[in-house]
């Protein structure tokens, strides 16, 4: 554990809590892509099956349980409790276009052909693109609520901090996980446009609106 990974995990946790609180407090999931949340739940489920097979640390296990539980709680809020506020007309990204390539890629490029390893690899690839339905929704409506933009910023910052952590680990432990690093870089690049608008608009107190 190093400071970059810890900060990354904290950003990740903050993102999830911000999203849950936003939906809970406003009693509405308007502007939130349920499809991205389905993909994230799938990411955590396939990656954290190792919860039953390997023990790393108490921190590691507790965080995994929190990520799993919060992702299913988010799905419950969107698809059950506040279903009436779910903006399905704007959440039209076809997730099979992400799921199928991720399945194929994880069968082609993986560290090892064991079921747990394949699920882990799939989860890494899927996480890289899981935010696309949400970004697609924002681009379709041309705007995002300020709180939604904070959520997206924290979620994007998490993987960016992990990249710094991987560089640090490369120099201190002299090894690197090629799959995680390449996927993590792609994941961070997908947020680049958003980061730019967030920094130039939201941090200056303006609304998050895409240029017309």
């Amino acid at each position: 554990m190093n400071i970059f990974r810890l900060l990354g995990d904290i950003c990740h946790l903050v993102a999830i809590i911000v999203l849950l609180l936003k939906i809970w407090k406003t009693r509405s999931c308007a502007g939130i892509s349920g499809k991205s949340q389905i993909l994230f739940a799938l990411v955590y489920t396939t990656r954290y099956v190792d919860l039953f097979f390997t023990y790393v640390s108490l921190y590691n296990s507790v965080m995994k349980v929190i990520f799993l539980a919060s992702s299913y709680a988010t799905l419950y809020l969107i698809y059950v409790k506040f279903k009436a506020t779910y903006d399905f007309n704007h959440d039209t990204f076809r997730i099979e276009f992400l799921l199928i390539p991720c399945v194929i890629l994880s069968l082609l490029i993986t560290h090892d052909y064991s079921p747990v390893e394949l699920l882990w690899t799939f989860s890494i690839y899927l996480e890289a693109v899981a935010i696309l339905p949400q970004l697609f929704m924002v681009s379709k409506t041309g705007e995002a609520e300020t709180i939604t933009s904070h959520y997206l910023f924290a979620l994007g910052a998490y993987r960016a901090l992990y990249i710094v952590n991987w560089i640090y680990r490369y120099y201190t432990e002299s090894f690197i996980d090629g799959i995680a690093v390449v996927a993590g870089i792609i994941q961070t690049i997908l947020y680049a446009d958003f980061f730019y608008l967030y920094i130039t608009k939201v941090l200056k107190g303006k609304d998050f609106k895409l240029p017309a």
Partner: peptide
Amino acid sequence: NILHSFKDEL
């Protein structure tokens, strides 16, 4: 081998 799986990460 510098390639290694980071399974201790989240």
